[in-house]
Amino acid sequence: MVKKLKRPIAQCITVIVLITSSQLPSQETKDTGIVARAVADAEADAEKDINRITWLGCGCIFTVYTLGAAYLIVPSPKQERLMGKSYDYVWAYTQAYKSRRRALQLRYALIGTGISSVIVITALVIVVSKEGKDGECCTGPDLSCGLEGCGSSESCGSSDGCSFLDGSSGN
């Protein structure tokens, strides 16, 4: 009698275990789907909300300070976007939005800082090279100048030697 009862109970347990185990992955998939959707939505919204020009401009003007601000000041998503969304979605969305928004702000601030750095370095190179040129000997094809450098009212040409800035030849 006991043996007869044991078999159906064991079968029932097996069926329950099978059903439970088959449901577990589908629940997990559902949760993963919600989280993936929330992350995708958050990233798209962060891309849409960010003011690129502001962060680029601030990066250009305030350089490294902007990088600090870009990291610390992260606006929140619009509250209305959380309406009608599940708990898991809201949690994933808020985290992903802030993370993406911070990354984008840092990227544009960094680009701005890079642009201003390039401008400053280029300006420095021009100034230094100009100062260097002032001391060079300007030698034309006929070496007629024979000067250490062109005068303030002359420019130095590679083939013509010194010429006056008003266009007339200095030779």
Partner: peptide, 25 residues
């Protein structure tokens, strides 16, 4: 719909509560 959710707007806080799950933000 699509979920059972309460949103309570106060002076300096927004509470989002899920009464079925008894959890929220």
């Amino acid at each position: 719909e699509p979920v059972n959710q309460w949103m309570i707007y106060r002076k300096d806080e927004l509470i989002i509560y899920y009464p079925v799950e008894k959890r929220g933000f």
